[in-house]
């Protein structure tokens, strides 16, 4: 079952890359018309949505763990945080490349840029907390769940505080032709598949690890 899904993910990833680079290529108004940098949107937007989805899953698993005390929730939480930080890193890296090419600076204070930087920091701190807490496994899981909930509450606070700042980010993007829309849709689907598969595999690894430790 998993092998089939992994194969589908791979096919989707290849298809979306192909579409983005051929028929879906974005040409258009830009600081530098020859620059292909606008195509970064096919990696940037899906990973931004994916890192937010991972954060929401983290909240759900945290509440699930605190409510039930079932260890499986904690395994999913750890896996989700690790996958989330990958997508948050891709989000910030692609954003910085685009910013440098189109606007000049690598990074500047603007609502969405601040929000995604803080999102990345929240993931990093969550993982540091996870790896540096002594005591029983249950205590670690509980404490990490508490931090995940507080961190999730921080996200809307970041958005509100950043709303008062000047915006330089692209307004919502409109595509010219169905190929571009298709490439974008494929990018979204394949990224979601990739995230789900990574979380699934990592959760299983953590489960086996904890079973081995128990024996």
């Amino acid at each position: 079952m998993r092998k089939i899904l992994l194969f589908i993910t791979l096919v989707l990833l290849l298809a979306s890359t192909w579409m983005a680079l051929t028929k879906g290529r974005i040409e258009g108004p830009s600081a530098n018309p020859d620059s292909p940098v606008r195509n970064i949107i096919y990696a940037h937007v899906p990973s931004s949505i994916c890192s937010l989805v991972c954060f929401t899953v983290l909240l759900v698993t945290a509440i699930g763990y605190l409510a039930t005390g079932n260890e499986s929730w904690d395994h999913v939480a750890a896996a989700t945080a690790e996958v989330g930080i990958i997508f948050a890193t891709v989000l910030n890296a692609t954003g910085m490349i685009f910013s440098r090419a189109e606007w000049g600076p690598w990074w500047t204070a603007s609502p969405r840029l601040i929000s995604s930087a803080i999102l990345w920091f929240l993931y990093v701190v969550y993982l540091i907390l996870r790896s540096s807490l002594p005591g029983s496994k249950q205590r670690r899981a509980r404490v990490c769940a508490v931090f995940a909930i507080i961190a999730f509450l921080d996200v809307p606070m970041v958005y509100i505080s950043a709303r008062y700042m000047k915006e330089i980010h692209q307004p919502s993007f409109t595509f010219d032709n169905p190929w571009q829309r298709g490439a974008f849709f494929m990018g979204m689907v394949s990224t979601m598949f990739l995230a789900a598969m990574l979380i699934w595999i990592k959760t299983d690894i953590l489960k086996i690890k904890s079973r081995l430790e128990a024996e």
Binding site: I118, F121, I150, D154, M157, V158, I160, S161, A162
Partner: peptide
């Protein structure tokens, strides 16, 4: 990390 957003206002 949690107090970061509050520092702007």
């Amino acid at each position: 990390v949690i107090l970061m957003p509050m520092m702007i206002p």
